[in-house]
Design a protein around this nucleic acid. Structure first.
Lengths: 341, 341
DNA sequence: ATCAGTGATGTAAAGGTTTTCATGATTGGT
DNA sequence: ACCAATCATGAAAACCTTTACATCACTGAT
């Protein structure tokens, strides 16, 4: 049983004493071939160790059963967990995943589109929040390849989106702080043009409004989502001498920065200040105090996005162009009732 | 310029007034075609928007320019950073990456091998530390597909390996502790069958031996690499009342567990106990005290592994079957001179 | 006994490349 | 001026499937 040449469908056909068409049918539409014949074929397949050549198959069928993932940074744990969800669903449905790490480099984005245009991938999952460079200037008439945005929506291009309900999540988080008795609650956001941050800020404001409160402008600061920006934002409030009793941060990294600033100033947490994050990154539970936060259902997001894309590929019109999953409140130890009520 | 049917090589040939063979040559071996003709062809390519159909190309050439990555968990930041390195190098050399998340499930490992046997991938990168299930029982005579193990070696199968020099790294780490004056140094390891842990323990012992010290058996404990196991190991030492002045942990997660245990017992760090980890995970610098550790050159590991695999694919005999990169000592604040010298 | 319908199989085309081999044209050396 | 060598190109085979269409043998109804 030499591996020199891989067995082809012809070898199988010869061994089973049928034509290659019958072998193909026995594999792909088993009901269309007589029982006895089918047995002979499956037997021959087993004996030869035959596997269909995916290249030939894709060439003929004009589809590859591959999905291209375009992400700025696959190393980001934020993405990689969604990736696992994408992979789970894709693999279950017989699809493979091709990864394209773009590092936000337009030329790399364009470059990866060759997988689409060369038929090497049937569809596209976008983590980038924008159309890949090579597609963005096309007139809207030009048909786009089937694609789904995940985590970060592509605004105004009609790209179906799967993500977390940021507005709702931020509202739940803020309401949690309010329910503990907080009235002066700060919000530390991302750059304002980021859709994610805008929605979370709106959710924050909605929760305040719902409790008859209004946001103190001095307590709403835009950072850039990094730990350092969280630290800087907290410091800024001390300098301005406009202090909240609780901080709601656009993400856990920012929350960690706030905690670092407060620890450095020797405040006791959460007694003197409460802190909430968003994301539930892997070490949120290991901070001191462990961080109360909103957990993103990343695995499910990946599955849902892939499911939507595969439906698109199957020609189904999606029931909705936007799937929003709920973030889950994870209560830990960084929130308590305010001391100086 | 309708996108209905993609332009084929034939369209280009017709427009340029040459045969398809010439078009193919103009693309792949430009020197072999006359200047004037080449210009006409490139012009026609631009006008038609032609892209080579990768399926047809792969079918004919019997290779796909794709590499399959087999990893137990792509979400693990430990892996994902290496993945970025793999991707960088692969993309630079015109290869694409296919990801296979196996979750250590033998059936998924076997399943993913179909990409190899169906010619959809030319080579294999193994993160799993063992041959994929479908290959492991083959007689050694059966030729294995080209593959390279990364991060975790595949023992005894002659699979080329790219990883960090664990022995050397552990020695450097331990020597760092010794240089600070520590004499009683604990080692908290992984499960002993893990090659990684075994090598780091050896490096630890070598450093001790080099300084004329021997390891106190009560200070060498096997955990499982989790934060919880680090906590438990430290507790165990308190229960046994056999205490070191410094802990060297097989990884940062374990070190974090040790820090949690010591913090809970209200020790002041690093004054009363020094701690070293291994890995330099993303939040090592955010712990209090920030963690002194050995940084793994993950990005470079990925690049080196891909480079090695592509050399293998090109038919070159690898210069060495093992590439070990040095870990880098990252000095932060979790190590000081022992107080009770 | 005939005919329509059904079911199982085979033939051959199509999918889009790369590459071997052949052909003709051109060059350069004598 | 001729021959050999080189160069540029084209025709056609090969890569391995899937599938439309044709064929043939049956079944069951008239």
């Amino acid at each position: 049983m030499q591996q020199e040449k891989l067995a082809t469908i012809e070898d199988v056909a010869a061994m089973a004493g049928v034509s290659i068409a019958t072998v193909s049918r026995a594999i792909n539409e088993p009901t269309k071939v007589a029982d006895a014949t089918r047995r002979r074929v499956t037997d021959a397949i087993a004996r030869t160790g035959y596997t269909t050549n995916a290249m030939a198959r894709s060439l003929r069928m004009r589809r590859s059963n591959m999905i291209l993932i375009l992400a700025p940074d696959v190393g980001d744990p934020n993405f990689s967990n969604i990736l696992v969800g994408l992979e789970t669903e894709a693999s279950k449905r017989g699809y493979g995943l091709l990864i394209g790490n773009t590092q936000n480099d337009p030329s790399r984005e364009t470059d990866y589109l060759r997988f689409i245009s060369s038929n090497q991938a049937d569809g596209l999952i976008l983590f980038t929040g924008h159309l890949p460079y090579g597609l963005s200037q096309s007139p809207p008439a030009a048909r786009l390849p089937p694609m789904v945005a995940v985590n970060e929506p592509v605004i105004g291009k009609g790209v179906p989106f799967v993500g977390v309900d940021n507005f709702e999540g931020a509202r739940v988080a803020t309401e949690h702080l309010i329910s503990q008795g907080h009235r002066r609650i700060a919000y530390i956001g991302h750059a304002p043009h980021r859709e994610v941050s805008r929605l979370r800020e709106e959710g924050y404001r909605a929760a305040l409004a719902g409790a008859g409160l209004t946001a103190d402008p001095r307590l709403v600061i835009d950072g850039d989502g990094t730990t350092e920006s969280g630290r800087a934002a907290a410091e800024l409030m001390f300098v301005r001498d406009a202090l909240p009793t609780a901080f709601f941060c656009v993400n856990d990294a920012t929350a960690m920065g706030v905690m670092i600033a407060l620890n450095a100033r020797r405040y006791e947490l959460p007694r003197q200040f409460s802190i909430m994050g968003f994301d539930d990154i892997s070490f949120a539970s290991f901070l001191t105090p462990s961080l109360t936060t909103m957990k993103q259902p990343r695995h499910r997001m990946g599955e849902a996005a892939m499911d939507l894309l595969l439906a698109l590929l199957a020609g189904e019109e999606p029931t909705s162009r936007e799937v929003l999953l709920r973030a889950e409140l994870i209560v830990r130890n960084s929130v308590s009732r305010p001391s100086n009520q």
